[in-house]
């Protein structure tokens, strides 16, 4: 008497295996869907914008005439914006991280600040825009200048900078600071001379990545109010300004009026993406080159 019907087992098994292989193929397709869309997006933008990308476009002033428009103002605006965002976020971000990781006692206050930071990281960027509009532009009466936009952007990326700095500080091995204390160094001396230099590559990598978020971010600046056609170049952080994403926004909106504006937007997107690519590769190079293993 046969206890196991090998026939039935084989039939059932082959169905299960077929399903297994089929689903593996579907999962693979899903994985490549996102990458496929990325490819289409980049191909679209480059094929549409590359013809408009030339020296005149990069160095020229804005114009309502598509063939005379340039984005130097937006490039300078992005530069000045970063001149505010970089020092402010580095100072506040690293300071907060040092406090939370090395000074704060584990307790209510520390966990309150920590929860607060993770909640802030989830606040939509446009809400930061409203904060900036109300506090910096209106109450402090800065107007829509680089400083107001930069401070708003700084608050937006601050939670990310804090979190990555904390991770970098946490990954510094304990025995390094213990050796420093053993030599008679004080806490601050240890932080300044031992912990920070070791953690710096990690902090920098994270900070650069969050900067690239600030460069591409548009919503808070739309809320603060950036003029659509700003002719003078910004020369300091107290000037009115526009940035690359804002120019993409206005040109995309107006592309239904004039088709060439879509090409200008595409060309500006190429510039923006190249800038982001350079920033992100720098971050990766720093991470790979300077991160020592202990």
């Amino acid at each position: 008497m046969e206890y196991i019907s090998t026939n039935r087992v084989a039939r059932k098994m082959s169905a299960r295996l077929l399903l297994n292989n089929l689903s593996k193929f579907i999962f693979l397709l899903a994985t490549f869907f996102g990458i496929f869309v990325l490819g289409v997006l980049i191909y679209r933008v480059v094929s549409q914008g590359i013809g408009w990308l030339n020296v005149d476009f990069l160095t020229g002033r804005l114009s309502t005439q598509a063939d005379r428009a340039g984005i130097m103002g937006a490039i300078l605006g992005t530069f000045w914006l970063m001149m505010v965002v970089v020092p402010v976020t580095m100072f506040l971000g690293i300071g907060t991280a040092i406090y939370l990781e090395l000074y704060a006692k584990k307790g209510r206050l520390q966990s309150f600040i920590q929860t607060n930071i993770s909640n802030l990281a989830g606040v939509p960027s446009i809400v930061y825009g409203i904060l900036g509009l109300t506090v910096f532009v209106r109450t402090l009466d800065f107007g829509n200048i680089v400083l107001a936009g930069g401070l708003t952007m700084s608050l937006l990326i601050l939670p990310i900078v804090i979190v990555v700095s904390q991770e970098a500080l946490r990954s510094v091995p304990q025995h390094l600071s213990e050796a420093s204390y053993g030599m008679g160094a004080t806490k601050w001396q240890t932080i300044q001379k031992v912990i920070l230099p070791v953690a710096l590559p990690g902090i920098l990598t994270g900070a650069i990545l969050s900067l690239s978020r600030a460069i591409g971010e548009t919503a808070p600046l739309v809320v603060i109010g950036i003029p659509a056609l700003l002719l003078p170049f910004p020369g300091s952080i107290l000037d009115k300004f526009t940035v690359l994403p804002m120019q993409i926004y206005y040109w995309t909106l107006d592309s239904s009026l004039m088709a060439e504006y879509a090409n200008l937007a595409a060309a500006t997107i190429i510039v923006l993406l190249v800038a982001l690519l350079i920033l992100n590769s720098t971050a990766i190079i720093i991470r790979n080159k300077f991160q020592k293993r202990y």
Partner: peptide, 15 residues
């Protein structure tokens, strides 16, 4: 894909 600015996605959706 996650690092592409949202404004670029907006352009892509619209055009």
């Amino acid at each position: 894909l996650a690092g592409v600015p949202t404004i670029v996605y907006g352009f892509f959706a619209f055009t």
